[in-house]
């Protein structure tokens, strides 16, 4: 089983099987809805994990990029009649440019400054979405047209589920490839030792910028899809707390673990639903989970389990 998992794409096959079989167990639209939102979050978290877990750089403002995608998909089609796909691309480009613009100077800095700068960026974006009411509808948000691709309208849980399942599998595959490539090794190396990476010829700032931009694009695209899927967007997508939620998913599932991203997204997307009855305790639970994991299970669920299995085998 583990050997199978460890063969490069064994895990991918298992996830594909699960995704294919899951609908057999779904009893209602709510189940589909949960699965779709887990898949969306999983893709975002994959991108974020490349940045945090693999490259060792933090972003506390990733929801801002989500917001860029969401609002691009909300505003451009309804105000200017753009086709959704083009709007989505525009959002992603915008997120990429913004990420590149701030990343260059920021990634010369370390840890805290990076946390602060990304956080600041997220806060500014959230404020902008709230204040530019004529475009964004202000704090009340705005409606988003349904997603249509080349004249074919995507509606209903089943179609969305299929789309997200495919996207998720693709992202898992691409991330796995990336990690095991010269590019991915350079990222992991600069996490392990910046000086060692540098003397080996890695232009560390360029790599940090690249992975930051890539994860921003992941987030923006998923922001667009979320907006279309939900049919509505409010400034809350870009909220600081949402950024923290995403980081929590990375941490819980497992830093530097592709499949951990999936597990983290699944658990923490389902959790608020479970906690919804306990108004307010949600925040406490999130905070407690973050602290407990960082202190007692700093590697996260999947890597810890994997290590345990490995030991058991010996």
């Amino acid at each position: 089983m583990i050997a199978f998992f460890r063969r490069r794409h064994g895990g991918l096959v298992i996830v594909a099987l699960i995704l294919a079989l899951l609908p057999l167990f779904f009893q209602n639209a709510y189940h589909y809805d949960l699965a779709i939102r887990i898949a969306i979050n999983a893709v975002i978290v994959l991108g974020l994990n490349l940045l945090i877990g693999f490259a060792g750089q933090i972003s506390l403002g990733h929801a801002g990029f989500l917001g860029i995608g969401a609002y691009a998909s909300a505003i451009l089609p309804s105000h200017y009649g753009w086709p959704p796909l083009l709007a989505m691309m525009a959002g992603a480009t915008c997120a990429a440019l913004l990420a590149a613009l701030v990343a260059r100077p920021i990634f010369r800095l370390k840890g805290h400054y990076l946390a602060m700068a990304t956080l600041g960026l997220g806060v500014i974006l959230a404020i902008a979405f709230k204040n530019e009411a004529s475009l964004t509808g202000g704090p009340d948000g705005m409606a988003v047209v349904p997603l249509s691709l080349f004249g074919y309208e995507l509606s209903g849980e089943k179609k969305w589920y299929a789309l997200m399942a495919v996207l998720l599998l693709f992202s898992l595959w691409a991330s796995t490839n990336l990690i095991d490539s010269p590019f991915g090794r350079a990222l992991r190396a600069l996490h392990g030792s910046e000086v060692a990476a540098q003397v080996a010829g890695v232009h560390i700032v360029r790599y940090k910028v690249a992975i930051f931009v890539l994860s921003a694009v992941f987030a923006s695209l998923m922001g667009s899809l979320t907006a279309h899927y939900v049919g509505f967007v409010t400034p809350n997508v870009a909220d600081f707390l949402h950024s923290i939620e995403l980081v929590t998913m990375v941490v819980v599932g497992g830093m530097a673990s592709v499949y951990g991203s999936l597990v983290g997204a699944a658990l923490l997307t389902a959790l608020p639903q479970a906690l919804a009855r306990f108004e307010g305790w949600e925040t406490v639970a999130f905070g407690a989970i973050l602290m407990l994991f960082m202190i007692f299970l700093p590697r996260g669920i999947v890597p810890t389990l994997a290590a345990r299995f490995e030991k058991g085998k010996e």
Partner: peptide, 17 residues
């Protein structure tokens, strides 16, 4: 550093909640 930042953020959420 990343882990320590996350821990203090967790503490913040707990207090606030």
């Amino acid at each position: 550093t990343v882990s320590l930042i996350i821990i203090t953020i967790g503490a913040a959420l707990v207090i606030r909640g």
